[in-house]
Computed example of a mutant assay.
Amino acid sequence: MIIDGLGTATPAHGISQSSAAEIAQTLCCDNAKQARLLSALYQRSGVRYRHSVALESSEPRFDSSVSQNGDFDTGDHRVLAMTGVAEKTQPVRQTFFAPATSPEDCGPTTAQRMELYERHAGRLGSESVLQALDRSSFNAADIDHLITVSCTGFYAPGLDVSIIKRCGLAPSVSRTHIGFMGCHGALNGLRVAESFARSNPELRILMCAVELCTLHQQYGWHPERVVSNALFADGAAALVACAAPSSSRGPQVIATGSTILPDSEDLMRWRIGDHGFQMTLSPRVPALIQRTLEPWLRDWLGKHRLTIDDIRGWAIHPGGPKILQACGDALRFRRGELSVSQSILAEYGNMSSPTVLFILERLLQEPESLPCVMLGFGPGLSIEAALVG
């Protein structure tokens, strides 16, 4: 299956990690000790900037190519990384998550959060779709099958119908939705797309992954949920695919792979609560990945007559800096092999399912980045992979 066009999109407004920590302190912390711990956690997250549909204003965007340390001035005058010019800016503003009024305050209800998801998910996904179509050999009317991926919201008529109407797809387009699979959802989407393409070489397939993770900001001092708060962000990514080479041949999805690690169901959970979706991530996850990834990946690549050393590019979902480090240690990476995943985490945060497509898009801009392996981890605990060549 050929990837004929890739597109990405983020909400209009973004926030530096230091300012996000200041907001989180008003939602999660009961005392000064917790505030200090939260601030330190946010600093160690590997994230420097993220976008959210809940924001009503922005801070200057982090630019890793200019900034030396990835940080913003914490005073009233913030430095625009793109220009180096100090400029007076208003504090970032959001009103959706009001400061906690008591330890029992859990913030907006799930229904309120889903209203915001319905308002923004289709618009954001459509932005990435239109970019992917613009970069492909096909028009919206050429698309035969639409695959949508999301784990952060539900409504009906849903994301698929919104994209069809906003982007001008034919009303007869076939639809498949992949829901609630977490950070590896886009890799499952690629598997479905590849299966459709193999079954019918004439199909033109569009896949769109949209996540509004920040709608599920959790209140109160729950250590595992505070970790999730520090990482998650909003974004969308789309790709156009076809079975046969097009006029502008792109990278090819050669194979996909999947495994569920034994006795790991309690290590990563994603539950629907009365006040948002509740993500729990055990600190034991990185050690399990480090222990199990290399033998599974070696066997899977071996079925395709490749070794780990044959892989020239790595698009690894940045579930957090410790997960990336565990992958690097398990696969004995040389310096720089995680740099693209680390950069996307720093500039955008963990956007769940679209994130690996942001990484792939940037990786493909580098020379000699193929063959590439895409990796994602999700509830199960499961490993999902795609081989791109």
Rank of each mutant, 00 (worst) to 15 (best):
M1A: 13
L6N: 05
T8W: 00
A12Y: 01
S18L: 10
A20D: 01
E22G: 12
A24V: 00
C29N: 05
D30H: 11
N31K: 00
Q34V: 09
S39P: 00
A40L: 09
L41M: 13
L41W: 01
S45D: 11
G46H: 05
H51R: 12
V53N: 04
A54R: 02
S57Y: 04
S57H: 05
S58Y: 02
S58W: 03
R61V: 15
Q68P: 00
Q68M: 08
Q68T: 11
N69V: 10
F72M: 12
D73N: 14
T74Y: 00
V79F: 10
V79S: 07
A81Q: 14
M82L: 13
A86T: 12
A86G: 11
E87W: 06
K88Q: 13
T89G: 04
Q90P: 00
Q94E: 13
T95F: 00
F97M: 09
P99R: 04
P103N: 09
C106M: 13
C106T: 10
E118G: 15
E118W: 01
R119F: 04
H120L: 02
G122Y: 03
S126N: 08
S128F: 08
Q131K: 15
Q131A: 14
Q131R: 15
A132D: 07
L133W: 10
L133I: 14
D134R: 13
R135D: 07
N139W: 00
N139Q: 14
I143F: 02
I147N: 03
T152C: 08
T152D: 12
P157N: 08
P157G: 09
V161N: 06
S162H: 11
K165M: 06
V173H: 05
V173S: 05
H177Q: 13
I178Y: 05
M181L: 15
C183N: 11
A186H: 04
A186V: 09
A193L: 04
S195M: 13
S195L: 13
F196T: 01
R198K: 15
R198V: 01
P201N: 11
P201Y: 06
E202K: 14
R204G: 03
R204Q: 12
L206D: 06
C208M: 03
V210D: 12
V210P: 12
L212Y: 07
T214S: 15
Q218S: 14
G220Q: 10
G220Y: 06
W221Y: 12
W221D: 10
P223M: 08
P223T: 10
S228T: 13
N229H: 08
N229G: 04
A230S: 15
G235Q: 09
A237D: 03
A238F: 02
S246E: 01
S248D: 07
G250A: 01
P251K: 00
G257W: 06
S258T: 08
T259D: 01
I260G: 02
I260C: 12
P262W: 00
L267M: 11
W270P: 04
I272D: 03
H275K: 10
F277T: 08
Q278W: 00
L281Y: 02
P286Y: 06
A287G: 12
W300T: 07
I311E: 04
R312I: 05
R312A: 15
G313S: 06
G313Q: 03
A315H: 01
I316A: 11
G319A: 10
K322F: 02
A326T: 09
A330H: 03
Q342T: 10
S353F: 06
V356C: 10
I359N: 07
E361W: 00
E366F: 02
E366Y: 08
P367E: 09
S369D: 04
V373G: 03
A385E: 01
L387R: 04
